[in-house]
Amino acid sequence: QVALSRTQVCGILREELFQGDAFHQSDTHIFIIMGASGDLAKKKIYPTIWWLFRDGLLPENTFIVGYARSRLTVADIRKQSEPFFKATPEEKLKLEDFFARNSYVAGQYDDAASYQRLNSHMNALHLGSQANRLFYLALPPTVYEAVTKNIHESCMSQIGWNRIIVEKPFGRDLQSSDRLSNHISSLFREDQIYRIDHYLGKEMVQNLMVLRFANRIFGPIWNRDNIACVILTFKEPFGTEGRGGYFDEFGIIRDVMQNHLLQMLCLVAMEKPASTNSDDVRDEKVKVLKCISEVQANNVVLGQYVGNPDGEGEATKGYLDDPTVPRGSTTATFAAVVLYVENERWDGVPFILRCGKALNERKAEVRLQFHDVAGDIFHQQCKRNELVIRVQPNEAVYTKMMTKKPGMFFNPEESELDLTYGNRYKNVKLPDAYERLILDVFCGSQMHFVRSDELREAWRIFTPLLHQIELEKPKPIPYIYGSRGPTEADELMKRVGFQYEGTYKWVNPHKL
């Protein structure tokens, strides 16, 4: 086992960053958080920038500027975001240094004079007029057009580079997404736009490419001749908990499936790229999406959770019991969808996408189930092999396979070949997804960000279904809070070829 401390991990990262040409360590950078008073800024962006600063992973002359409508001070920003920093008493001095680099400007999102004030403020910072500028839009999409237009007109660096990070949702359907994309691309070049999907920053999602293309053993079996089906799962054990009003506007397909799960599907299904260059990788992902037809209604199961009468606390409440959810809402909190990649490698292999709230566990994984062994000599005792990439929690890679049961006879039983990170790298604290992705933006690497043509294809696949749901308002199937979801989803999976045995229990190697 390799035991690495946080300091050692960050030392390795620093070495990698400083050796590259793309990370300008000594240049002045300004990180501007648009929507600095909001939840995302408070819980994710400010803490992430602090962790990067604490670990010495930001360029040395980096300033952080918050911008929002609320009249706040840096002290206010500190008060609301610091509880999420997880700072230790030993880091007190470092924390003071961090907040000394912070400033805040209040202004409207659609007022040109406010942006001119913001620009004057940035120019007044040390070497601010020639600094590289990175704008993070932690804002609702309704203000994107006004904000990007004003940034472009008043706040661009004339000497350094300018980059803009856009948070999902990128529209509600193909038409609104196209409108937003066309607007942003009329102001910024594609190499300046970073559409963030934080799932692409997760260690195991990034590991998929290495697993596939750096190991000879997987190449020959990664196709329709050997793989019976692919299941991509995202499960949350909690409901909307008072935030249903926002969720109800989008629903589970827009929230998770059309982005996170579809991105994971691309990494499983794509061909080997010409290189690890950002556009070479994204070219292959677009090719996969172009091979997927629009979702067919007979390959869809929609569910909505109801309270568990035997549960406790939140578990007793259904989705419609959330006071922020519109009365009688038919918005799905669970969806199972089957897609097919219609190309030579994957023809006929079902890709089953499942996601839901208020389920029995927290889990995100990719599961490849292989065909049955031909010419069975073990009297149907063999179960199908599976390769599982567990994204969260407890990152893991393992192969479910058959071995001989101890004893006199040739009785096979299920076991696993474990390729888990935790076994080799004991207690290594890896940077989280937002840390990686923000560092990628500083480096100018777009590999783990969504390109406009990729986004367009993703919406093309799901828009007809979303429009049909909005028009017909089908009643989702009720499922109990804390269950596996509607049984109809299991029946759909069985119908397209997935075999669920229920006889195997994964042993978490992190707890051995």
Results as ranks from 00 to 15, higher is better:
Phe498Leu: 13
Ile389Gln: 02
Ser293Asp: 10
Lys473Glu: 12
Val281Arg: 00
Val391Phe: 01
Pro474Tyr: 10
Asp376Ala: 11
Pro393Val: 03
His467Trp: 11
Gly307Ser: 12
Lys290Trp: 05
Glu365Thr: 08
Pro412Asn: 12
Gly307Ala: 14
Arg327Ser: 14
Asn411Tyr: 10
Lys317Glu: 13
Glu413His: 11
Val366Arg: 03
Leu261Arg: 05
Lys317His: 14
Tyr504His: 06
Pro406Arg: 08
Val397Arg: 04
Lys473Thr: 11
Val306His: 13
Gly313Trp: 10
Thr403Gly: 10
Ser293Gly: 12
Pro406Lys: 08
Lys383Ile: 14
Glu386Phe: 01
Pro350Trp: 01
Ala336Asn: 12
Asn385Leu: 03
Leu339Gln: 04
Leu339Pro: 06
Val441Lys: 04
His379Trp: 10
Leu492Tyr: 08
Ala358Gln: 03
Glu414Asn: 08
Gln446Pro: 04
Val373Thr: 12
Cys266Phe: 06
Val441Phe: 06
Phe378Cys: 07
Ala332Tyr: 04
Ile292Leu: 12
Cys355Met: 05
Asp283Arg: 01
Ile352Arg: 02
Phe351Met: 06
Asp280Ala: 15
Ala358Asn: 02
Arg345Gln: 11
Lys363Thr: 07
Val301Cys: 12
Gly444Arg: 09
Gln369Thr: 06
Lys473Pro: 12
Tyr479Asp: 02
Asn394Tyr: 13
Asp376Val: 05
Lys287Asp: 10
Val397Asn: 02
Asn343Val: 05
Ser278Cys: 10
Gly313Met: 13
Val496Leu: 11
Asp279Val: 12
Cys266Arg: 00
Gly348Met: 04
Asp372Ser: 11
Leu261Glu: 01
His260Pro: 02
Leu302Gly: 03
His371Trp: 09
Met447Cys: 08
Phe442Gln: 09
Lys426Asp: 11
Met257Gly: 08
Gly485Asn: 02
Asn308Gly: 09
Ile377Gly: 07
Pro393Gln: 08
Ala269Phe: 04
Ser329Pro: 05
Val450Ser: 06
Leu262Glu: 04
Glu271Gly: 07
Leu437Asp: 05
Gly311Val: 10
Val341Leu: 12
Leu368His: 03
Ala336Gln: 15
His448Tyr: 08
Gly444Val: 00
Val441Asp: 03
Asp321Gly: 10
His379Ser: 14
Tyr504Gly: 06
Val281Trp: 01
Asp418Gln: 06
Ala297Gly: 15
Cys443Leu: 11
Phe498His: 14
Lys429Trp: 05
Leu439Ser: 11
Glu454Cys: 02
His448Ala: 09
Pro393Asn: 07
Gln499Ser: 14
Arg384Glu: 07
Thr331Leu: 00
Leu419Asp: 01
Val306Gln: 14
Ser415Glu: 03
Arg484Gln: 01
Thr331Phe: 03
Met270Val: 06
Leu430Cys: 10
Arg367His: 02
Val496Thr: 13
Tyr319Thr: 02
Ser415Ala: 12
Arg367Gln: 05
Glu488Arg: 10
Arg254His: 03
Gly407Val: 06
Val496Cys: 11
Pro464Asn: 13
Gly311Gln: 13
Leu265Glu: 03
Gln304Ile: 01
Gly444Met: 06
Asp280Thr: 11
Glu488Leu: 11
Gln392Ile: 03
Glu312Ala: 13
